[in-house]
Design a protein around this nucleic acid. Structure first.
Length: 267
DNA sequence: ATGCCGCCAGTTTGGCGA
């Protein structure tokens, strides 16, 4: 069977609902992993998506974060949060908060996680340590599925550019998060479980960026980064027939600052 | 043309994003 799976940081599913529906109708993915819902689990637009033939498992608390898996191949064994997922201790908080950044499900032949890796804010910030700790927990979580025969993938906004080629200008990121050695080492450790970085085609220019800042004409100037990734195990990677970044979805007003990343499989 | 930041909750300004 052929399966189309995608990941998209949608930057508010409520603000982006018309764009989401338009994109689902056009691209017709079988499975879509979403990040940055910015709504509660209850507030997800389940019915609008269901009218297009999709079921949704969502996990959100409101203002920030939030992840979902939208599927027309079924949704089984849904897991919210990574087992032992670390929380973030904000400056003004008494206790760390476990944020809605991960949801897993089985969609027909595929086991999938949709993840929104912490941003890190600044090198040395508590959020940066949290990011690295979160990635270690992700590695522990996926170890078994990554080594298994069933097709498995972790898709999402990793908030890391895996190589120097994945940013438009390395000098612009000197000393910044997203390009540091410890972040890239955490990604390498994740790959060591048996996951491969499924590289999408760019539909224009030479690099498959997935994010362009809203400011300073970054999209028209193609000042982007590749930070939305599809990490698949061997069974998944061997089945890939095509992958691309749908930059059309980044054009115009009212779009997310990220583009969907689409992967086609023949399973 | 792809065009100069946008989302949310709400102290309608500030936190967050990457």
């Amino acid at each position: 069977m052929t399966v189309r799976i995608a990941t998209w940081n949608i930057n508010s599913v409520t603000a982006r609902l018309p764009k989401l529906l338009e994109w689902l109708e056009g691209a017709r993915p079988d499975v879509l992993c979403l990040q940055e819902l910015k709504c509660s689990t209850d507030a997800f637009p389940y019915n609008a998506v269901a009218e297009l033939g999709y079921e949704t498992a969502a996990h959100g608390t409101g203002r920030w974060n939030g992840v979902a898996i939208v599927s027309r191949l079924g949704l089984e064994d849904v897991v919210r949060d990574l087992p032992d997922q670390p929380g973030f201790l904000a400056d003004d908080a008494m206790l760390p908060v476990v944020e809605p950044r991960a949801i897993g499900a089985t969609c027909g032949p595929l086991r999938v996680w949709s993840v929104y890796v912490p941003n890190g804010r600044e090198v040395g910030h508590a959020h940066y340590g949290y990011k690295l700790q979160w990635l270690e927990t992700l590695r522990d979580t996926v170890r078994e599925d990554a080594a298994a025969a069933r097709p498995f993938a972790v898709l999402g906004d990793y908030n890391i550019a895996p190589t120097d080629e994945d940013v438009y200008d390395l000098a612009a990121f000197e000393g910044q998060t997203h390009v540091t050695e410890p972040e890239r080492a955490a990604l390498a450790a994740l790959r060591e479980t048996g996951l491969q970085d499924v590289m999408p085609r760019p539909l224009k220019y030479d690099r498959p960026y997935t994010y362009w800042d809203y400011r300073q004409l970054c999209f028209p100037k193609n000042r982007g980064m590749r930070i939305d990734l599809t990490y698949g195990n061997k069974a998944f990677a061997d089945a890939v027939t095509d992958a691309y970044v749908d930059r059309e979805a980044r054009k115009g007003k009212g779009t997310s600052d990220h583009a969907p990343v689409v992967t086609d499989l023949d399973l």
